[in-house]
Amino acid sequence: MGIIKKKDVLYVASLARIKLADGQIEGFTGQLDSILDYIKQLDEVDTESVQPTSHVLPMVNVFRKDDVKPSLPQEKVLENAPGKEGYFFKVPKVIDGAEK
């Protein structure tokens, strides 16, 4: 029996805002389990003296100068928006009404 349970799949799906049909849940449970199993092989490698990698490129300090560049025209910005009002994007009402 794997470490991934049905409730884990449902939790991950809810974090990703994905609705799963009942039939799909079992399938994903097995798949996620086998992915974790595969990754688990890394546990066998001795990483004692290896620095954690935070980026795959051997580069640091890539900056840009604080110079203003032209933004997109507002019409372009909103061109593909499913909903708009004036120059605003329009989205379904956010219920808790609290801003981050």
Binding site: R64, D66, D67, V68, K69, P70, S71, L72, Q74, V77, L78, G86, Y87, F88, F89
Partner: peptide
């Protein structure tokens, strides 16, 4: 003068979505 990861202006109070890219 500009945003943290792009060259859009940070000026306050302009028309909605006019400072986006």
């Amino acid at each position: 003068k500009t945003k943290i990861f792009c060259g859009c202006s940070t000026t306050f109070g302009n028309s909605p979505n006019s400072q986006t890219c």
